[in-house]
Every structure is written in C-alpha cells, then in structure tokens.
Amino acid sequence: MINEDVLETELAFNRLKKISKGIRLLLIVLACFVIVLLAIKLGAALFATPTESQNVAAVLFTVVSDLIVMACLFIGASVFSALGKGEDPFSKRQSRIIRIAALLMLLDVIIGIFASVGFPLVTDFGQASVGLLPSQGGRTIVSINAGELVIAGILVGLSVIFDYARLLQKLSDETL
C-alpha cells in the first residue's frame, strides 16, 4: 500500500514536471510573438505618413502595455520553469512572483484606462472590457479591461493560497 502511494506520488510529480515544461515553452513562444507584434507596431508607427501617424503618447501606451504583457509571460515561464525543475510550488519566491505578475496586470489595466480616454483605438481590440458610453451612443470613452482585472484578482488569490499552503507545509514538517 505504501509502495503504491509512493509510486503514484512519483508519477504525479513527473507528470507535473513534464506539463510545467510544456507550459513554460508555450509562454516563451507567446512572449516572443508579443515581441514580434511590438516590433511590427513600432515599425508601422515609425513609417506611417504624417496623416496616419498616431500621437506619440498612443505609441508610448502601446509599448508600455506590450512590455508589461511580455513581463507577465516571462514571469509565468519562470514559475513553470521552477516547477519543471522540481522546486517546491509553495515557496515564498513563487508566491512573490505571482503577486508581482498580478500587480503588473493591474498596472496594465490602469494604463489602459488612461490610454482609452484619448486613444480609443489603442485599447479597444480583443478585450473583455467594461466602459462608459456617451449619452448619444458611439465609441467608448473610458474602457476598462475587465478580463485582465479578473485575472489579476485570481493571481492575487493564488499567491495568498500559496502563502497559506507554504505555512501548512511548514507546520506539517515541524509536526513530523
């Protein structure tokens, strides 16, 4: 019975390591894709004709937002890299990294709110957004990326759960 439990635990741990390596690779590929898209956006802004060129602030908001997305993807890759190496998922480092990703996502939501006021085309693509509309209808005046806001909340919750699990694991180890 004990041997079966040890074997089952070892198989689950190996499966976790394999899946973590795959997710890490996927996150790195996505981050590289965001880098390519950012380069295309910057190239389009640089070579746009004067009538097509956007405001410098709009380009700056786009660059900062894309850099935050890349940072979150690389942070996620770091978390899954540690899991793939067999490190403890409930460490203080993992919890802190997840909380940093959540704070970066909240920062991106705030930047998106400011960017949507003057530059609605910058922030209105591919989001689950909530916004304020003018009384006559038309384009959104203030757009809030609700999807990113929810994910940031989930990440904060996960970091708290990881802290609690780390504490329980420490108490369990001390009991034995």
Results as ranks from 00 to 15, higher is better:
Ile2Leu: 15
Ile2Tyr: 14
Glu4Val: 05
Glu4His: 12
Val6Met: 04
Glu8Trp: 15
Glu10Gly: 15
Leu11Gly: 13
Phe13Tyr: 12
Phe13Gly: 14
Asn14Val: 14
Arg15Val: 07
Arg15Glu: 06
Gly22Leu: 05
Ile23Pro: 03
Leu25Tyr: 10
Leu27Val: 05
Ile28Pro: 11
Val29Thr: 07
Leu30Asp: 07
Phe33Met: 11
Ile35Asp: 06
Ile35Cys: 09
Val36Pro: 12
Val36Tyr: 07
Val36Leu: 07
Leu37Ser: 12
Leu38Glu: 08
Leu38Gln: 08
Lys41Met: 13
Leu42Cys: 04
Gly43Pro: 01
Gly43Glu: 04
Ala44Thr: 15
Leu46His: 12
Leu46Met: 12
Phe47Ser: 12
Ala48Gln: 04
Ala48His: 03
Thr49Ile: 12
Thr51Asp: 04
Thr51Pro: 04
Ala57Arg: 07
Thr62Ala: 10
Thr62Asp: 07
Asp66Glu: 09
Val69Asn: 05
Cys72Phe: 04
Cys72Asp: 10
Leu73Asp: 00
Leu73Glu: 00
Phe74Cys: 08
Ile75Asp: 12
Ile75Gln: 11
Ile75Lys: 10
Ala77Trp: 01
Ala77Gly: 05
Ser78Phe: 05
Val79Thr: 05
Phe80Thr: 00
Gly84Tyr: 01
Lys85His: 05
Phe90Asn: 04
Ser91Val: 06
Arg96Pro: 13
Ile98Trp: 03
Arg99Leu: 13
Arg99Asp: 15
Ile100Lys: 11
Ala101Asn: 07
Ala101Arg: 09
Ala102Gly: 10
Leu103Lys: 09
Leu104Cys: 09
Leu104Lys: 04
Met105Cys: 03
Met105Trp: 02
Asp108Lys: 07
Val109Ile: 07
Ile110Trp: 08
Ile110Gly: 03
Gly112Pro: 00
Ile113Met: 03
Ala115Gln: 04
Val117Pro: 11
Val122Asn: 01
Val122Asp: 00
Thr123Lys: 05
Thr123Glu: 06
Phe125Tyr: 08
Gly126His: 08
Ala128Thr: 11
Val130Arg: 00
Val130Tyr: 01
Val130Ala: 00
Gly131Trp: 01
Leu132Ala: 05
Leu132Thr: 03
Ser135Met: 13
Gly137Thr: 01
Gly138Lys: 06
Thr140Ser: 03
Ile141Leu: 09
Val142Thr: 02
Asn145Phe: 03
Asn145Trp: 01
Gly147Ile: 01
Gly147Cys: 02
Ile151Ala: 08
Ile151Lys: 04
Leu155Arg: 02
Leu155Thr: 02
Gly157Trp: 13
Ser159Ala: 13
Ser159Met: 13
Phe162Gly: 10
Tyr164Trp: 11
Leu167Thr: 12
Leu167Gly: 15
Gln169Ile: 13
Leu171Glu: 08
Ser172Leu: 15
Glu174Met: 15
Thr175Lys: 15
Leu176Asp: 09
